[in-house]
């Protein structure tokens, strides 16, 4: 995706025996994945947290009337779950780098700073995707087994993919900013939730249409296009500005 421009500029540079951008990206990503594979810190904490959010949803919806149609709100609930879970993961994503000083080490390497952004965003994306793959069936199991969603239910995959990419892209930039501030956990939420709001709104709209089986061409596609457009703009801007943020 956004790796291509940086790859192109790298290729033009005279060969000095330095590893290619793709190799750097792969190494950085492998480092994050290996660390996660050994500690399982992110996945367990995000997974447990997501499960607890589901429990809270259960308490919140326990008193609803018998005729209450959960399908109408399930799109919104899914996105509330994803936003809160991703906040937890994003907050943690830079904690090792900061505590063990490994970010300073990475910054000493002569590499394009946007590679750091792409590798970190990819690892965050993978973690969030794994957590979604585990928790969304659980959501179905807890809340939707008694219901009959529309035949277009599989189309929720579209907004889920687009939304997860956008959330991790914006979130990685903001997590890098808040890493060095006082009260970083709260600050990340303060900056992250308003900034992802348009994405959240569009993804919830598309998900709800897919669950209820509404007007696919008239509501689902425009909402998804809006979310994808916001993704492209936000990822490009984050990718461009990341150099300034990570070096500050």
């Amino acid at each position: 995706m956004a790796a291509n421009p940086s790859q192109a500029t790298r290729a033009e540079a005279p060969s000095t025996g330095r590893p290619s951008t793709l190799a750097q990206y792969r190494t950085l990503l492998a480092k994050d994945l290996r660390q996660e594979f050994r500690t399982r810190e992110m996945l367990t904490s995000m997974g447990i947290y997501a499960l607890l959010v589901l429990v809270v949803f259960g308490a919140a919806l326990a008193q609803s009337a018998r005729g209450f149609d959960i399908l109408q709100v399930s799109g919104g609930l899914i996105w509330a779950l994803i936003v809160f879970t991703s906040l937890l993961g994003l907050n943690r994503s830079f904690s090792h780098e900061k505590e063990e000083g490994s970010l300073e080490g990475i910054l000493l390497v002569p590499l394009d700073r946007s590679v750091i952004f792409l590798s970190k965003a990819t690892s965050n994306l993978l973690f969030l995707a794994v957590v979604e793959i585990i928790t969304l069936p659980l959501f179905y199991f807890f809340f939707l087994t008694g219901e009959t969603p529309s035949s277009t239910f599989w189309m929720t995959v579209g907004p889920l993919a687009v939304g997860t990419i956008g959330i991790t892209g914006i979130g990685t930039l903001l997590a890098t900013i808040t890493m060095n501030t006082r009260g970083k956990d709260v600050l990340l939420a303060v900056l992250f939730i308003p900034l992802t709001y348009p994405l959240l709104y569009a993804c919830t709209a598309a998900t709800t249409v897919a669950v209820l089986g509404g007007d696919i061409g008239g509501a689902y596609v425009p909402a998804l296009a809006l979310a994808a457009g916001y993704d492209v703009v936000m990822l490009l801007v984050s990718w461009l500005l990341y150099d300034y943020v990570v070096s500050a």
């Binding site: 900013i177 808040t178 501030t181 006082r182 936000m234 801007v237 984050s238 500005l241 500050a248």
Partner: peptide, 18 residues
């Protein structure tokens, strides 16, 4: 939330643009 003036300026600029 940021004490260092240079860093505050950078982060604020980036966030202002976004």
């Amino acid at each position: 939330a940021i004490d260092d003036a240079e860093r505050r300026a950078t982060y604020a600029s980036v966030f202002g643009i976004i």
